[in-house]
Amino acid sequence: MTAETGVHKPNLLVLVGPTAVGKTKLSIELAKSFSCEIISGDSMQVYRGMDIGTAKITKQEMQGVPHHLIDELEPDDAFSVARFQAACAELVPAISSRGHLPFIVGGTGLYVESVCYEYQFAEASADEEFRAEQQRFADEHGPEALHDRLAAIDPDSAGRLHPNDLRRIIRALEIHHLTGQTLSSQLKGQNKVSPYNLCLIGLTMDRQLLYNRIEARIDLMLEQGLVKEVESLLDKGYSRSLVSLQGLGYKEIAEHLLDGLPLEEAVIKLKRDTRHFAKRQLSWFRHMKDIHWFDVTDGEKFPEQLAEIHAIIAGKFGIPLEYNYKH
């Protein structure tokens, strides 16, 4: 119940931060403490058969905590912010009705923010001919040239999209083509009032330490069989042009397998692109309001930080602090 409106808002806990910062481990601890069900706020973990390259949580790591929007789609079924919003609109009340706390965990900034503040986007269905034209332009002149085309009309969107993210670049161009509005202007025009009783926790850390963790994670992915995972997807007939296979790790390894890019060069490219992605994630979340930020660079401070996080969540949702240590 809010004092301003007298309307009851559903509780929603959210944990954000860049890739490799440690969201998964903390999310399980918090979920067990506050009886949460986790909704994945990651645009790639929704796909089946894409486990290693997405650093997907395992059943063992879940420790019995219910997870949603993981392993729900085949790689050729395109996921989008609209689908994520629709899924969360069903999941949040369903989880609440079971007496559990809905908990979004992830690093896909637009997806998470669109749910937190119930974004409404201008209607822009599709123009397949326009999309094909942009794809042909990218094929002929390179993805950077198409990225430059977006930067000329919507520098903010171009700044948060990697030049290789052709699907989202084309969509941003298409939105401008169909509506006359840029995607960034639509985002800026949103009413940042949440339909939820919202508690946002953010994790960050020293940039170099984060980059070291990213590179170590990629090395582990390779040891776990990332190349075989991508090869298996391609062997099943999935096209490299799919939204799923344009994801970090999949695009670079596909270049190795299909174009003969030496594996060492593909890995260097993947590490570089993932560092850039983490930087864009941090930039996105820094512009979100009401996030309680925790710098987890110093692991020795984490128990103290964890106690503070518990207190913030308990205070926000009116949960007795001693309760969440009994689980």
Results as ranks from 00 to 15, higher is better:
A126E: 12
L12T: 14
H68I: 10
E223G: 02
V193W: 02
R160W: 05
S194W: 02
Q85E: 08
L257S: 13
N197E: 00
L178R: 05
G53V: 05
I253F: 13
S27C: 08
A266C: 07
P93W: 09
K301Q: 12
I70Q: 07
Q63A: 04
I57R: 09
T54Q: 03
R149P: 11
S27K: 08
Y196T: 00
M205Q: 13
D154M: 13
S157M: 15
F137E: 10
L183K: 06
M288R: 00
H287W: 02
G41N: 04
V105N: 12
A89V: 04
D259K: 14
F277A: 15
G318I: 05
L233W: 12
E265K: 09
K9W: 03
E300N: 13
G189Q: 02
R213M: 07
D259Y: 11
K188T: 04
E4D: 08
R280D: 01
N164E: 08
E118C: 14
G142V: 15
V227H: 09
Y325N: 12
L233R: 13
I169A: 06
Y47Q: 07
L248F: 10
F285P: 03
F137S: 14
E129F: 09
G159P: 07
E128L: 15
D165S: 15
E128P: 00
G142I: 14
V230N: 05
C88V: 01
Y211Q: 00
H177A: 13
T297D: 05
A138F: 10
D290N: 00
Q305R: 07
Q208V: 15
L261D: 11
T24F: 01
L203A: 04
D290Y: 02
L69N: 08
E4M: 06
A55D: 03
D259R: 11
H162E: 11
S239G: 10
L270C: 04
A86M: 01
V14L: 05
S241H: 10
P93D: 09
V92A: 03
L234D: 00
L173S: 09
K326M: 12
V230L: 10
H147K: 04
S114P: 07
F79R: 03
Y196I: 02
I153W: 10
I313A: 11
L258Y: 08
F34R: 01
G225T: 02
L321H: 10
A266I: 00
E174A: 10
T204E: 10
L146G: 12
D139T: 11
G318F: 04
R83G: 08
L263M: 10
R160N: 01
I39Q: 03
S283T: 05
S283D: 05
L12A: 09
R280C: 09
G237M: 14
P262V: 08
S232E: 05
K32L: 09
H100P: 13
V230R: 02
H177I: 12
T54D: 00
D206C: 00
K192L: 00
I70W: 02
Q305P: 00
F302K: 12
D71K: 13
T5I: 07
N191E: 05
P195A: 03
Q85H: 06
A254D: 07
A138M: 11
Q208N: 10
Q134R: 15
E265P: 12
R149Q: 13
G247R: 07
G260Y: 07
E123S: 15
Y117H: 07
K236T: 14
P163G: 13
S40C: 00
S33D: 03
A94E: 12
P163D: 13
K289P: 01
T179I: 05
D51F: 07
S35N: 09
S239Y: 00
G225N: 04
